[in-house]
Nucleic acid binder design. Structure first.
Lengths: 221, 221
DNA sequence: CGTATCCGATACACGAATGTATTCGATACA
DNA sequence: TGTATCGAATACATTCGTGTATCGGATACG
């Protein structure tokens, strides 16, 4: 009995293990987006990832734990991508007034491109409505997103010789709310094959640009 | 064999039957709001209603059918109540400019009072994101709601000697989107016991009033 | 090479929910 | 009062998902 009785927690962060977890999260992202978190069975996730349930339970305690790990990963990815896009749209040159509309357009197209992520966020929010812990996590996510967007807007408008009338955080929240509403509606219109009558009275890009114009004014040097 | 072989569908709309269906829908509304449509078992709904599953399957084909019946019922109820409230706020006298803010406040408080219905709508929307038929139903609901709110706004502002700058339907959609965002956020803040840091940068009533002021102007006779 | 350890696969036991088939009681009607 | 019908209760078979306990193969390391 010379050695300590090393019954320590499996220690456990091998490269192999890390990649298994990644693959499981990738699969979960797809399956969650397709059928929803509740409907998705652990079995289905494993099948998609090419693993058995044994692998799953060796890496995660439950579907919920996986969901949170996945959420954290995707939140970071999303924020990072948003930042990248902001940099891309404004390489170095200062934007002008026209660019603000272009930026809004880019932002919305970005959101729309993340339809699957949008579905998962919608479910995230729904879970948060019934569970305080999840609500805290979700609010933290939205807070971070809001700050990021707020910073972007500030940079953009300053560069464009504009300034926002009122609290920029409030404005960025409003913009996010409107973008989300647009994205959701367009996803829904895409789902339901409602032909003609859906055109016309829907929120769209122009509504946001109009809003931006309403809340900006020339900066006084 | 003189009589026709009357194997016709159970015919079936007795008063007793109707009331059973109502009680089941009442129970379902509660249970859906509490734990969500997916999580709610037929068993749980029946228990809440004081019936057995036999009664359920005698009245509905599935939980989904119940959900749709319930949705239709609640949509009608909600629209009716919204109309009532509008009438209550403007008995006969024409509102003035100040009243517009009051109306917005009333509207938001109304929405907030319907927290359970809001949870169910959020889930409705989520289901719609993955199913075309549900999407069609959901869009029809939102379209009706939008029209109703648009009419209310038009009446209100005309009476107040104001008019909206731009398409009123677009504006009412925007208002609805903002109200919903506010309601959701406040529900979430209520859930997560996130003490101090949640104050400050959230969308609130003032944001909507500000928006309303932005999009209205005195009517030119 | 041999051996120990890690990690994913397999097998199993259990619980939960569904839907149906049948029974039982109440109500309507002659 | 007797009888037929309607509607809810009960009992049952089945499916599906979960979680655990055990097994087996690969890899690292002496």
């Amino acid at each position: 009995m010379s050695t300590d009785v090393d019954v320590s927690p499996p220690a456990a962060d091998s490269e192999r293990r890390r990649r298994t977890r990644e693959r499981l999260m990738d699969a979960a992202f797809e399956v969650f987006a397709e059928v929803g978190v509740h409907t998705a069975s652990v079995e289905a996730i494993c099948e998609r990832a090419g693993f058995s349930r044994g692998a799953f339970y060796s890496n995660f305690e439950s579907k919920e734990e996986l969901f949170f790990a996945l959420s954290d990963r995707e939140v970071d990815k999303t924020l990072a991508r948003a930042t990248d896009i902001a940099r891309e749209v404004f390489p170095t040159s200062a934007p002008n007034g026209e660019d603000v509309a272009e930026v809004v357009r880019t932002m919305i197209q970005f959101v729309r491109g993340e339809a699957n992520w949008h579905r998962i966020v919608a479910e995230y929010r729904l879970l948060a409505m019934r569970n305080g812990d999840i609500a805290t996590r979700y609010l933290d996510f939205t807070r971070r997103l809001n700050e990021r967007v707020g910073d972007m807007l500030e940079t953009i408008t300053l560069g464009a010789g504009l300034r926002f009338v009122g609290d920029i955080r409030l404005i960025s929240r409003t913009l996010i709310a409107l973008s989300s509403a647009i994205t959701e509606e367009q996803m829904l219109v895409g789902e339901g094959a409602t032909g003609a009558e859906s055109t016309g009275d829907s929120l769209d890009f122009d509504a946001i640009v109009a809003y931006v114009h309403l809340v900006t004014e020339p900066a006084e040097d």
